[in-house]
Amino acid sequence: MAADTHETRTANRGDLVFQRLIVVGAVVMVVLLAAIALELTRESRLSLSASGVRFLGSTAWDPVKELFGGLPFIYGTLVSSFLALLVAVPVSLGVAIFLVELAPSWLRGPVGFMVELLAALPSVVYGLWGIFVLVPWLRGGVEPALARSLGFLPFFSGPSQGFGMLAGGLVLSIMILPTIASVSREVLRAVPNWLREGALALGTTRWEMIRGTVLPFARSGIIGAVILGLGRALGETMAVTMVIGNRPKIAASLFAPGYTMASVIANEYTEATGDLHLSALAEIGLLLFAVTLALNALARLLVWRVSRVAVQGSRR
């Protein structure tokens, strides 16, 4: 009896120690997020107090004259990410629908793997490919053609430079495509099969079934996938830095060089000339962090909601 209680106690103690140990490990995750926020705030304190919110609206960026306005970078980030979504969303939804609803089963595995491979390749390799393949192609073929046919629009006017907003947007679209496609694929997979059968048994075609029952059910999850893709586009650094041209000017033409928040940090952070410069860069980083944080939180909630509804539905 005594031995029993002794053993019980050691077992419990083992459990307790184990549990405490792994809790400490797990809490690191939360601490990290908080620490990143604190550190970036601390680093950007100088810039925050010097120019505050006006920083966001100012277009002048001249480290030599100590002029720091963040607008060109915010603009560049938004435009390039928007371009990326414009291309990537329809394509990746097509991929996801193809992989879950249409493709013969022997094709699903290999094609799915290839799409995931697209996500696995390092950003810097995309940049390399962008410099030597995509940019020459844009400069020599696509941009002149666009200028000829749609040149009356301000976006497609001006000289074809290759390195510019269009190149940045396209590289980004390739990089976020697998994110949106694979999250959407998971969301579509979470749609219960009885929903599909119910529609098919009423005499719908596949597409009518998908549009009428699968997509409405998966809607918020797909929106989540798109937001995740947007988050990735906003923060993507290397590939964009290598093709976007890196000029802090706001231009209407997509052919003209631009600059993104992540790029300017990558290019200038280690070579910042003064405390204010460093602090201004940190403020850009803080803004980027806050935006991606909010987008990710929102996206996760949306994706999570679909799978939860699906689980409840199947339990019924």
Partner: peptide
């Protein structure tokens, strides 16, 4: 959320 934080931010 951390997995969505841009890697450049982690660098900073």
């Amino acid at each position: 959320v951390l997995s969505g934080v841009p890697s450049i931010i982690v660098g900073m």
